[in-house]
Write a protein that binds this DNA or RNA. Structure first.
Lengths: 346, 346
DNA sequence: CTGTTAGCGCTTTCAC
DNA sequence: GTGAAAGCGCTAACAG
């Protein structure tokens, strides 16, 4: 089968010819900022462009002006509601600024993240937004910093979402304080014996939340028994598995399980339910993030709210702001404890 | 504050000079397919590139070779699990092919969709994938077809996800048959009196599912009373609102509420619960899509499975396949009824 | 195999 | 105000 003959897309040149004007005039009519072009000509050009179904070639524009209009967004897993909500905020804010967003997924693999960042530089995006927990793995971390630094050195803007500490602009979510506030609220509800489901040891987000929670409990002289802290993947299935593992050790005296994020908490609730354990009758549960479904599960999930779409929006705003040029600006977003039916007063 | 001085990114030219070879040789070493270049030179070039932290400019490559490596994906709402799961499939498949994906969100607005498609053409993507329900609104529909046709006429590939009938490649989800099978299964479970929560009249997906469900019931001589079909937005909140509205009309004799998608079903379950109605004790619920959370709500939601990430993957495969050049290829994905606790046998 | 040289589509001085 | 022409960074003939 022969390749179908495809007319090449109309070029600015074609438009100029069709309109009987010069390339420059066509360019100015279609995109040029100042309205320096005679309205006669302008109309002719516009008409010609419409007639030819002209669409400006962004690559050509980018190369001619030396800058693109794209935002590169890197997430761990776009099917995870935490990331998809942030992405929604990023995309909305970016589109409002006339920016195109390209999306890349690390699948929670630091090596892959590094590769992606490296590859993404080829796009010469105006902004690169990295979300997903930093890991304390120093090797990839260092390489990542190198790569991002190379990017900012050539005028790119970088925004990290989550924990601060790296030499880049960041939207900081106060995981530690949020978790601590949650612990306090839970103690106030009457809970005394806790278990925790946490993510990989190297994930900063996971660490911070667990530390905050533990410190919050400590204020009341409560500690979580080490055997009751179980690690799992930072996903729904990870939560399910971790809860199952926890069950095996016997949960009799535990009255609340804290999962470091909502998807894990929801997985844990499913595991408990399948094991015939009533939530919150037998045991209460709390999570972190306040993803949309937290209110739709039964019982509705107690959690710590993060204004996720807003975080995305702020990331874009920060990237575009003048103050961000220094490259180490921080914007903090407030977290808020949300008590729901999964942790009634007792 | 003066603009920080930013070194321009290293160019191929810089690399060539640094390595002491010609531009062509540098290009060939770094990207050229055939290994026609002497290994000596090759190494020198690679070393120089590394030293300069060189990253090829995709825009320049695109314009020089006349084609890009990007896939444009248009979704209604990336925070909706239906779309984010499909997007996950698209992104994974695209990345495996070395393609970059750019994402745009219509927010369920046909005009916006049209604008986006128009704008996206400027990227000269290899592929454009549109997901989200087609609407039967003929005006936008026609304009959209025009725009997409212009795109394919210049060699672009288009893939639509969901219902067939438009002159483009499409990944077809059998909404009608799936809903019909669901109705049959539900009748077999012992249900006899139904209500339905549906989306906007113009949404093809919503129509097809409702029609399939109604026809499935009709096979058993059952009809849904028109007063018991209520329309809402195609979202969780739409389902919540629609269920609330339904409640106002009195639901005493209804034994199952079918929502045309899972997010609506989940919203409806929350509304019912808040109204003190027990699901499935007082009334059963069923949805459509089988999003991840369908199994985590309580009771777990009866639904019709669509292999969402696979749909995304298939869309990319279809776009890239040779047979898709004709532009009207269809790939069907199978749906499967999943009975869960929200509709026990009775 | 390697280097020279034309472009690719567009923006932007720089003259007119 | 308008046009001619010089690039932007890279690839791909085309000669050596």
């Amino acid at each position: 089968m022969p390749a179908l003959p495809h007319a090449a897309p109309a070029t600015l040149h074609d438009v100029a010819r069709e309109a009987g004007v010069s390339l420059a005039t066509a360019s100015r009519s279609l995109n040029g900022s100042a309205r320096k072009v005679n309205d006669d000509y302008r109309q002719r050009v516009l008409a010609a462009a419409a007639r030819l179904n002209y669409s400006p070639n962004f690559s050509a524009q980018a190369i001619a002006k030396g800058s693109t209009s794209t935002v590169a967004l890197v997430v761990s897993d776009i099917a995870d509601p935490y990331f998809s909500s942030i992405a929604a905020g990023v995309i909305r804010a970016a589109e409002a600024e006339g920016l195109i967003v390209t999306m890349a997924v690390t699948e929670r693999n630091p090596e892959r993240e590094l590769e992606l960042v490296r590859a993404l530089r080829g796009q010469r995006p105006r902004v690169m937004i990295l979300t997903g927990s930093r890991s304390v793995d120093s090797e990839h971390q260092a390489a990542l910093i190198t790569e991002l630094t190379a990017f900012t050195a050539t005028g790119g803007r970088v925004v990290l979402i989550s924990q601060e500490g790296l030499p880049f602009n960041t939207v900081v979510v106060d995981n530690y304080l949020g978790a601590r506030a949650l612990a306090n609220a839970l103690v106030a509800q009457g809970y005394r014996t806790f278990a925790a489901l946490t993510g990989a040891e190297t994930l900063v987000t996971s660490r911070d939340r667990l530390a905050g929670f533990a410190d919050g409990l400590a204020e009341h002289g409560i500690a979580i028994h080490p055997d009751r802290v179980v690690r799992g993947e930072f996903t729904r299935d990870g939560g399910f598995a971790a809860a199952t593992e926890l069950l095996a050790t016997g949960l009799e005296q535990v009255d609340l399980v804290f999962a470091v994020n909502d998807v894990m908490a929801i997985g844990a609730m499913s595991a408990l339910r399948e094991a015939g354990i009533d939530v919150p009758g037998d045991i209460a549960v709390a999570g972190f993030d306040d993803i949309d479904t937290a209110r739709d599960v039964t019982p509705a999930l107690t959690t710590v709210n993060i204004p996720l779409t807003d975080v995305g929006r702020q990331a874009v705003a920060l990237a575009l702001s003048d103050t961000a040029r220094t490259g180490d600006e921080a914007v903090r977003v407030a977290t808020r404890v949300i008590l729901r039916a999964s942790s009634p007063a007792r």
